[in-house]
């Protein structure tokens, strides 16, 4: 099971990294979405894997539980990464509408240089 989770994290990370290195905003957003999956699963796995041991306290004696702390952290991380994705999407959209272009690299530095009045 561990190998399944670890390889999934690896695949998601690799795909995410490849996509954020693309030259268009949309690919970058997709890449970041994949990376946030990867990071969330990675953080979650730091609590070690457990099957059928949800951290819901049982009324009947000593049941086993999985580690609840990474789950709590990942839960907020999922929501926050949604917020961040939303902001990014909006910035990308704004940039596209303003400049009719969704490239993420500037063309070359000398085109953007401005006069330096003393």
């Amino acid at each position: 099971m561990e190998i399944v989770v670890a390889s999934s994290v690896a695949a998601l990370t690799a795909a995410g990294v490849y996509l954020i290195l693309r030259l268009r905003t949309f690919a970058t957003i997709l890449g970041l979405a994949l990376l946030s999956y990867a990071v969330n699963v990675f953080l979650f796995s730091s609590g070690r894997l457990a099957i059928d041991l949800p951290p819901i306290l049982s009324k009947y004696g000593d049941a086993g539980y999985t580690d609840p702390l990474p789950q709590a952290l990942v839960l907020t991380a999922i929501v926050i990464s949604f917020g961040m994705t939303a902001v990014l999407v909006m910035v990308a959209l704004g940039a596209f509408v303003e400049s009719d272009d969704d490239k993420i690299d500037m063309d070359s530095p000398d085109e953007t240089e401005e006069g330096n009045a003393p």
Binding site: A6, T13, A14, L21, L49, L57, Y65
Partner: peptide, 29 residues
């Protein structure tokens, strides 16, 4: 680059899923 990064993260996740460390979680439970 992507494969190296992904492989690294995967290996890291795998290697610590195989090991126990002391955590503060028991306190919360």
């Amino acid at each position: 680059i992507a494969l190296a990064a992904g492989g690294g993260v995967g290996a890291l996740a795998y290697s610590f899923m195989l090991r126990n460390t002391s955590t503060i979680s028991q306190y919360h439970l």
